[in-house]
Structures are given as structure tokens and as C-alpha cells.
């Protein structure tokens, strides 16, 4: 973007992050404030380096849950960046996004939404409508809408994010499963259980294909095993069937993403709701054994 963060600032940033990670805020904060004073003396207040330093200090305040103080700094940084880098610079989008996150943490979803929306518009303009960073922004926007109960918007944003991830990163990217999971919770909140179930099964089938190859008679996704077990128990053929290894799913689970584990839990809860206790038990057993 025509502006590089100076090495000295980068080093200081790394140092501050280390102190903050250790909870040593009493060291991190004065370090930031001193650097801020030095920068202001040499470059003046309205300089991109000052904005960067304000962002670093805001991060430390965020980690201490001092959201108001952090937002105050980011507003200052935003105004500096807009005037020095231009209104449509990616750094402006990032600052807007983080301001929205801070508002979100304080439950101020309505105030956060327009900031997130503007960050999205900047990213679309600068990166193009199909860039993964656009999808990332859509995810945050969806979550803000979800917290306000605006489910139509949530579905729209998640669907768009999903299409971008599938097209740009491929169907096996972790972001695809994550976004499907989020979309499914939006469906659940509206009582759209069938739609949620379809997505959960897609995630688990995808995880299966990734781990074991194509689905066939010997290699079936865990939810197929679960439903077959349910069927058997209903026809009283397999009342006391032990939990078998289900094609190695327990072991596969151990290595897979937290999203798959969450999906197993959520589909399990959905089965339980439908009274499919054996199917639910099968998925929950899989989660437990994978630990």
C-alpha cells in the first residue's frame, strides 16, 4: 500500500505482544506510551507510524478487557489513517473492523454494524468481490447481524462467504467447514432443523472423504453409521450392539479440526431432539473417544 511499517516499530510491537501475552501489562503499557511520545515528537501526531503505535496500544487494552479505552485509541488511529493513507486503504478497513469487534465485545452490535459494512466495502473495492479477506469480513458482519436477530442478512452473508471460500480455497479448506457450521447455527436459531442437518452431514462427509477417500460400502461417513445403528435398534435387531470402531472414525477425529468435533456434537444434539437416541449416542461416543 505504499507505506511500510518501520523495523523499529515492528520490533517494539513484538516486544509488547510478548509482555502482554505474559500478562505483564504494567511493562507493556508504559513501553507503548513512551514510544508514542517519541513518535509524536519526531513525526507529529498525524503520522501513519503514530496510528500503528495507537493500534498496538489498543491491542494491549483489548487484552485487558478495557474496550472503551481501546476504542478511543482506534478512533484516533482511524482518523489519522484516513487522512494520511486515504479513505479506502486496507489499513483503514482493518481499523474499522477492529473498532467493530470492540463494539461487539461491549454488546453494541447496532453501532458495530455500519463500521463492519464500511470495512467490507473497502475490501471489495481494493481486493475484488471474491477475495478471501472479503469472506472474512462477511463472517464478522454475519455475526453482528445474528446478535441482532437479523437472520435473513446472516444467511445471505454466510452464503456469500461460503461461495468465496469454496471457489478460492477449495472445498476442503477449514474455512468452508467453519462457515457451514456457523450457517447451520443460524438455521437452528430459526428452527430450520432440516437445513442445519444437511450442512452438518456435508461437513462430516467431506471430512470422511478427506480422511478415507470416496464413500463406499466399507467406508461410510460417521452419520451414516449413526443412522444405521438407529435403524437397527428400532427394528430390535441390534439392541446391545457394542460401539465398534466405525471405520476408524474415532482415530480420524483425533487428528481433525475442532470444527468436525463441534459438528459431531451439534448433529448429535439434533438427533437427540428428533428422538434418535442411538444415532446421537454414536456421534457423542465418537467425540468422547477421540479425546
Amino acid at each position: 500500500g505504499g507505506y511500510e511499517i518501520p523495523t523499529r516499530l515492528r520490533t517494539l510491537h513484538n516486544l509488547v505482544i510478548q509482555y502482554a501475552a505474559q500478562g505483564r501489562y504494567e511493562v507493556a503499557v508504559p513501553l507503548c506510551k513512551q514510544a508514542l511520545e517519541d513518535l509524536e515528537r519526531t513525526s507529529g501526531h498525524r503520522h501513519p507510524d503514530v496510528a500503528t503505535m495507537l493500534n498496538i496500544l489498543a491491542l494491549v487494552y483489548r487484552d485487558q478487557n478495557k474496550y472503551k479505552e481501546a476504542a478511543h485509541l482506534l478512533n484516533d488511529a482511524l482518523s489519522i489513517r484516513e487522512s494520511t493513507l486515504g479513505r479506502d486503504h486496507p489499513a483503514v478497513a482493518a481499523t474499522l473492523n477492529n473498532l467493530a469487534v470492540l463494539y461487539g465485545k461491549r454488546g453494541k452490535y447496532k453501532e458495530a454494524e455500519p463500521l463492519c459494512q464500511r470495512a467490507l466495502e473497502i475490501r471489495e473495492k481494493v481486493l475484488g468481490a471474491r477475495h478471501p479477506d472479503v469472506a472474512k469480513q462477511l463472517n464478522n458482519l454475519a455475526l453482528l447481524c445474528q446478535n441482532q436477530g437479523n437472520y435473513d442478512a446472516v444467511e445471505r452473508y454466510y452464503r456469500r462467504a461460503l461461495a468465496i471460500y469454496e471457489e478460492q480455497l477449495g472445498p476442503d479448506d477449514v474455512n468452508v467447514a467453519r462457515t457451514k457450521n456457523n450457517l447451520a447455527s443460524c438455521y437452528l436459531k430459526q428452527g430450520k432443523f432440516t437445513e442445519a442437518e444437511v450442512l452438518y452431514k456435508e461437513i462430516l462427509t467431506r471430512a470422511h472423504v478427506q480422511e478415507f477417500g470416496p464413500v463406499n460400502g466399507d467406508h461410510k461417513p460417521i452419520w451414516v453409521h449413526a443412522e444405521e445403528r438407529e435403524e437397527r435398534s428400532r427394528s430390535r435387531l441390534g439392541d446391545s450392539m457394542p460401539y465398534v470402531e466405525y471405520g476408524g472414525w474415532y482415530r480420524a477425529c483425533r487428528g481433525s479440526s475442532p470444527t468436525v468435533t463441534t459438528t459431531l456434537r451439534n448433529l448429535g444434539a439434533l438427533y437427540r431432539r428428533q428422538g434418535k437416541m442411538e444415532a446421537a449416542d454414536t456421534l457423542e461416543e465418537c467425540v468422547l473417544r477421540s479425546w
Binding site: I5, T52, N55, A91, N97, V101, N140, L143, N182, A269
Partner: peptide, 20 residues
């Protein structure tokens, strides 16, 4: 289980704000 459902949903901070 509502908690499980929501476990992964967190607003994401953009760290790139430090790298411009």
C-alpha cells in the same frame, strides 16, 4: 448444547492493522 453451537463464533480481530 446452545453453547456448543456457539463455541466457534467470535468476532475476528484483524492483525494486519499492524503491518501496513
Amino acid at each position: 448444547d446452545q453453547q456448543n453451537v456457539n463455541r466457534q463464533q467470535q468476532l475476528e480481530w484483524d492483525d494486519s492493522t499492524l503491518s501496513y
